[in-house]
Design a protein around this nucleic acid. Sequence first.
RNA 1: GCCCAGGUGGCGGAAUUGGUAGACGCGCAGGCUUCAGGUGCCUGUGGCCGCAAGGUCGUGGAAGUUCGAGUCUUCUCCUGGGCACCA
Length: 868
Amino acid sequence: MAFQQPLPKSVPPAMSRYNFKETEQKWQSHWSEHKCFEVNIDPAKEKYYVLEMFPYPSGRIHMGHVRNYALGDLVARYKKAQGFNVLHPMGWDAFGLPAENAAIENNVHPAKWTRENIATMRGQLKSMGLSYDWSREIATCEPAYYAHEQKMFLDFLQNDLVYRKESWVNWDPVENTVLANEQVIDGRGWRSGAEVEKRQLSQWFLKITAFAEELLQDIAELERWPDKVRLMQENWIGRSEGAHIRFQVSDRSDQLEVYTTRPDTIFGASFCAVAANHPISQELARTNAELALFISECNRMGTSEAAIETAEKKGFDTGLTCKHPFVEGLELPLYVANFVLMDYGSGAIFGCPAHDQRDLDFARKYDLPVIAVVAPKGAEADSILIENTATTGDGVLINSDFLDGLDVKTAKTRVIDVFEERNIGKRAINFRLRDWGVSRQRYWGCPIPVVHCGDCGIVPVPEEQLPVVLPEDVDLSVVGNPLDRHPSWKHVDCPACGKAALRETDTFDTFFESSWYFARFADPANADKGFSPESADYWLPVDQYIGGIEHAVLHLLYSRFFTRALKQCGYLSLKEPFAGLMTQGMVCHATFRDERGNWLLPDDVIIDDNGSSRTSAGTIVTIGRSEKMSKSKKNVVDPEFIIGSYGADTARLFMLSDSPPDRDLDWTDSGVEGAWRYLNRLWRMISEPSVALAVLDTARPEAMDGHVFDVYRTVHKTISGLTEDLDRFHFNKAVARIRELSNTLETLQPEQAGADWVMRFGLETLICLIAPMTPHIAEEAWQRLGHDSILANTPWPKADQALVLDDMQTIGVQVNGKLRGTIELPVDCPRDIAEQQALELPNVISAMDGKPARKVIVVPNRIVNVVI
RNA sequence: GCCCAGGUGGCGGAAUUGGUAGACGCGCAGGCUUCAGGUGCCUGUGGCCGCAAGGUCGUGGAAGUUCGAGUCUUCUCCUGGGCACCA
């Protein structure tokens, strides 16, 4: 998609094409010099905090960033025009795994790699003309940032929000390192290819579960969040009500505690099962090699819910049995089963095959009894036959002793009451949510500020010794954790007793940094603390947060938790960090493959006029469906190239015009061309208007041609409609309205009375309305129209409501629900007049075919429907 | 397996509460401008029938509610997304 911009010297300046390169640079410098977007606390003004999810500095910006920041900038500039004191900052989520990978692959230090990437990407973002307050820029890998989160961690520790426990990790025995799930491919390390082991390590956890109920309840308050995200958070937290029940294990002194959400099905129990990592399994495995083998098999299986749910249900009969709590003499065999999760509930279940599909699959495989205890409503108790589908719906209890005849809900309550009376179980609420493991055995992250002392145990690093700075003189060419291998860094004196001790060599999960960065932006230069209470009180919460749906759960939930934890530690006075959330869809592009099936870059593909495609070398190209832009499929378009060839305004306009923000967007060359052509058209309308413009600041003329007045009304309607579109995030509709207004303005004729004035008014309004989307061309046009003010500081246009509402309107007339014509009626026209006019329409008369109207439905200002 | 979202012209998408389906753009066709290509401008553009007026079908599929359904209900098919160490 080569594009040259011809600028022939012979053409006079007014006729020249819009010069985006010069213009975009000019206004970017201008805004920067005039500190247009730098803001301070101003109690007299209402604040508005717009935040886009800050990027990981991976090297170069991609189209997803362009979309995200075009959306955010539109909101920020629009709110500024509406008079808000707008905080719109940008920074870098700068710790993370890719820096370490790059270090190993390219022999470059993660710090250097990261800082260079930031410099590149900052330049790219600046070329987009985004209204950031760059004076607030932060990078989370700098001690000036992470020092404060080390302090926060220590405060969490003091407030009992942190603890240590053993937890399982993916261990790569060749690289001597812990792997992320995504680094485990088919059970092997992605780089080493070694078979991954499960290992238990002692790790730091944050008590997010302490807030589980609150985090769940408060979702209801997040009114300006997408329902989809709220639902995902709800499901993630996964509150369930049920019971813990203790089963006596035969021939042993201990009891097995199970968690169940279906205590009502207790009389249908036919086995018990524990997780592979359950203490009982572990204990038995020590003397049972076969069981140990089964457990290691379970450990090799993926830990994801999807993997567990879809895997074949397998179990190992321990030979032990559990006594049924109610049925004297009934012994339930105890299995170790691969579908029981140690992390959920108590890591043990009782199986009721008739009413749980997993249990049924298991029972069929091991030939266990299947006893129906719930009869669906209306079904005959003795006609129930469970084959291969468990019934999980409501019904009436059968075969269940004292529960017989009760519905499921009542039976649950009753049976738990009995458990509690007999002291063998109790009511329990369980959450799927687990505590947040924040330890990472990685180098490029924030050091966890504690010291391990042989005598004193775990000792927090004293506040005056913070920050614990990540050493930069590390060797990444050797396997294992560089912090652990560093010759001196971890060796310190115990802060408590002064004896030789060791630093914690784990670093924080990078979600730690992103859980509070929004607050740091309120007070980014504060050296004493993360942010002052005053700055937080003024700027927080974020009024509009914008980012990818991929963060719908973890990042957003961690931030919500972090905010509560900070509140508990006295940092903040609010619970919810993000009052409004908008999640954007992905940027997609068609995919191309050559004859051998190799992916091709869009740049390597030539589409001929007849629609056929080939490579530049002439070989055949297959065009595949549009998919999310990704390096692996090569269906990427480099934003820098687009900005260089068409300008930032074109790229931004296209990002906003073709799809609503929350849906996926197809990047197409023709769409970009369309945006580019429109900007040139707009430029022509300004520089060579079809109707000479009235002089700046002249009063509205009293005499106006009828058509001119209609156009004038359209301008007001556009202001009103577009403002509403922006408030509802219907940005693609807003762009459509801009184009409609352009079309309408071009219908003005020079000889019509008032046309010169309405043309100026219309163009100035158009420029103001498009400014948040394409700010550079708008500023230039504003200047060209004779203004010496900065458009970015200019108030948003106001519509005259009297002109927005029409006094006449077109109403559809139907006969038996089919449209047969339209009538022009005054607004709020009486029913009988509407009916009369409708019945007089020739088309209506012919459609009625001489039959009388049985009924005429008149919906005022909407429709008339004649029923015959 | 479970949960969620979405299916509207050749394409991206419009259509506040059920009330004129297809705004706006892309593409395409014809014309004008131009030495020519591109740009620009004008006109047309859901399918089918028709010279036209107009008719008829039409929002993944099937059924239902309603004077009236893209919109509500039920079933169904397809596509995409999420399901705990990428960020």
